[in-house]
Design a protein around this nucleic acid. Structure first.
Lengths: 142, 142
DNA sequence: TTCATATCTGAATATGTATGCAGATATGAG
DNA sequence: CTCATATCTGCATACATATTCAGATATGAA
């Protein structure tokens, strides 16, 4: 009999390795941190914002209209996207006359984008792209 | 007169630095790559999945029930989350008897999680958390 | 075989989010 | 001042996504 019961907020949950669960729970990121992390990731989880960010990674700094031209999107959409990214301190804005120039906020962001792109290019398609896999087709991945 | 016109798919868009736009467009990640990248980021853009991943980062390997206990979520929710992560090759599953053990797929993922957590902890709150800024309060920014 | 356990899956709904439009704001020129 | 340009913002809707439930599958035990 390996199973144990671990009581969490008054609700008993069956666990196998209670010690490891307890230890992991203590070292786990807090809910607030997890929320912040997921909000950051969520911002990158949109194709248009992603393209904007990688455009900035390549270009260094671009104004809204050039950014819109680069990623081929209406300026309004780019502006909406940039607002979210700016609010989350993923990009930084600088005004020059009537124009706003945007660039990535810091090297953490650049590294994050670069690392993920490397991951993608080395590890092949990340997502099946379709509506998940209709068939499990669990084969060559062992 | 600095402005130029750059024609893209038959639609003229005003740009400031046409050369930089053109160069950036050529070096920009493709749409397919951007889609894959954003899908990966999108997977991390959910608090529950984020907590699951950081739990795996701490624990190394956990079965579904221990994972559920660790992050304090119903097993069904954890299973749903794991399916998405598994499909995207973010986590890897191993069966042992009736149980499935999950761990992070590779070091890219570990590095990504670690880097982002460092970014968060060094750079303070990533997102304002509220409904964006209610007041523009555009004042001291000049 | 039958039963119990651990996990998975599909469907419904409820919530969140992106997109485009219309108008607002900010800056520079005259 | 007025006008034009560059960007921003709020709102509405259309789309996507998380969550939950009920039932399915897979494995082990008897």
């Amino acid at each position: 009999m390996k199973e144990n019961l671990l009581s969490l907020d008054g609700c008993a949950i069956k666990v196998v390795d209670a010690a490891r669960v307890e230890e992991t729970r203590q070292r786990l990121v807090s809910r607030d941190e997890a929320t912040s992390l997921s909000e950051l990731f969520g911002l990158l989880g949109d194709v248009n914002r992603t393209r904007i960010l990688y455009a900035l990674l390549e270009a260094g700094e671009l104004c809204v209209c050039d950014l819109a031209a680069t990623v081929d999107m209406p300026e309004t959409s780019v502006s909406h996207a940039l607002r979210l990214l700016r609010t989350a301190a993923v990009v930084r804005a600088r005004r020059d006359g009537r124009m706003m120039f945007y660039r990535l906020e810091d090297d953490h962001i650049r590294l994050l984008l670069d690392l993920t792109l490397q991951h993608l290019r080395h590890d092949a398609p990340v997502v099946a792209k379709k509506k998940l896999l209709k068939k499990p087709a669990r084969k060559g991945r062992g």
